[in-house]
C-alpha cells in the first residue's frame, strides 16, 4: 500500500491573505520570519503505486486549480 500526500499552495505572486495574517502574528510574537504561505495537504491511500500521470489527472480534476495554485505529490510505502 502507498500513502500519497498532495501539497497544494497558492502560486507565487498570488496574494495569500492567510499566510500574510500568520506572518504578522509570528512577527508580533518576536519571530523573524518572512514568506509565510498557508497551503493544504490532502492525503490518501492506494493499493498499488500510482504513476505520476494518474496523480496529475486526479490533481487537475479536483485537488487543485492551476489558475491560482500549484500541487506537489509525495509518495511513501505503508506496511
Amino acid at each position: 500500500m502507498w500513502r500519497i500526500k498532495a501539497e497544494v499552495k497558492l502560486k507565487e505572486g498570488v496574494l495569500d491573505v492567510q499566510g500574510r495574517a500568520v506572518e504578522q502574528v509570528l512577527r508580533q510574537e518576536g519571530y523573524d520570519v518572512s514568506g509565510v504561505r498557508v497551503g493544504k495537504m490532502i492525503e490518501f491511500i492506494t493499493e498499488k503505486k500510482m504513476d505520476l500521470e494518474l496523480l496529475h489527472e486526479i490533481g487537475n480534476k479536483l485537488l487543485f486549480n492551476p489558475v491560482i495554485e500549484t500541487i506537489e505529490f509525495f509518495l511513501e510505502p505503508v506496511s
Partner: peptide, 10 residues
C-alpha cells in the same frame, strides 16, 4: 476564465 480568491482584507 479566472478564479475567485479570499478577499484581500481576509
Amino acid at each position: 476564465p479566472g478564479s475567485l480568491l479570499k478577499n484581500e482584507n481576509g
